[in-house]
């Protein structure tokens, strides 16, 4: 709070800290809050996929309803599912509440950062949570399932697919978070999230759906399909799977499409 008589403060001074630092500040806040609430975050991330893994991978296997190789097919699917869903939830729910009730995001909208970059930060933050959510499934899968064998040479491609899948999830979360009113969020989660959960080719291989063509078409519209199928191609190539380049291309298109709609929606909500 310097006195105004000191060295005349002329013309526009340097435009603040530079948007890079502001971006890191906003991202740092979100990460710090996640760190503080780590316990609830980790349980939110683990509980649902753990039960899916346990029932489909272990219980049904022991009862003889699924063949022994099923766990091998299921684990990549669950990694894909968690990458996308944890990202969607991390972005969508807080935004619905922020924009409609608490307005807590306003202070970040007033940071010296373009509003689009605040939206990008939301996608990146959601993606980081999604990525973390999917990575913690790896040790869980190894502990719960006994017959997991991965082709380690596929790890770099798998990592790239998970990053893209998380980003697509974060962007999809931004679309939901900025377009859905809080009164409808429950309905949206029920009618959008549940179908996404079961049409992402997480519990079955996409290419073997030939006899259920209509269902295969629906699955082809779900971005999670391309993460699941891509991961199978990279880690468990013996399971029938879509070609890697198709998966990468489809995920890039998802990121671009959801990103563009989500960022537009965000700017519309942030600025009157």
């Amino acid at each position: 709070m310097s006195a105004p008589t000191a060295a005349p403060r002329t013309a526009p001074r340097q435009a603040g800290p530079g948007q890079g630092r502001a971006f890191l500040g906003v991202l740092g806040r979100d990460l710090a809050v996640t760190g503080k609430e780590f316990g609830s975050f980790i349980s939110q991330v683990l509980v649902q996929p753990f039960f899916l893994l346990f029932v489909f991978g272990v219980v049904l296997g022991q009862l003889g309803y699924v063949t022994p190789g099923y766990a091998q097919l299921l684990l990549p699917g669950l990694l894909a599912l968690n990458a996308f869903f944890v990202a969607v939830q991390a972005t969508a729910l807080p935004l619905v509440i922020d924009f409609s009730y608490t307005k807590e995001i306003e202070d970040r909208l007033l940071a010296p950062l373009s509003t689009r970059l605040v939206a990008v930060e939301k996608i990146v933050f959601g993606a980081l949570r999604g990525l973390f959510g999917s990575l913690v499934m790896i040790p869980v899968g190894y502990l719960v399932l006994d017959e997991v064998a991965w082709d380690l040479a596929g790890l770099p491609l798998a990592a790239l697919l998970l990053v893209l899948g998380s980003l697509a999830g974060g962007a999809a979360g931004l679309v939901i978070g900025t377009l859905v009113s809080p009164r409808r969020i429950n309905v949206v989660f029920a009618v959008v999230i549940t179908p996404l959960l079961f049409t992402g080719s997480t519990q079955f291989p996409f290419l073997q759906l030939g006899n259920l063509r209509w269902f295969q078409v629906i699955c082809a519209l779900n971005p999670i399909t391309y993460v699941s199928e891509g991961l199978r191609g990279a880690l468990t190539p013996s399971v029938p799977h879509l070609a890697g380049w198709i998966c990468l291309l489809a995920l890039l298109v998802s990121c671009a499409l959801f990103g563009a709609i989500g960022i537009r929606g965000f700017v519309r909500r942030a600025i009157d």
Partner: peptide, 21 residues
């Protein structure tokens, strides 16, 4: 230049919007 403007202004809004996290 909204980004530059945000660096030189401070806002006390009508409705409390503190970060409750």
């Amino acid at each position: 230049d909204p980004v530059a403007a945000r660096a030189v202004l401070g806002v006390v809004p009508q409705r409390p919007n503190l970060d409750r996290s």
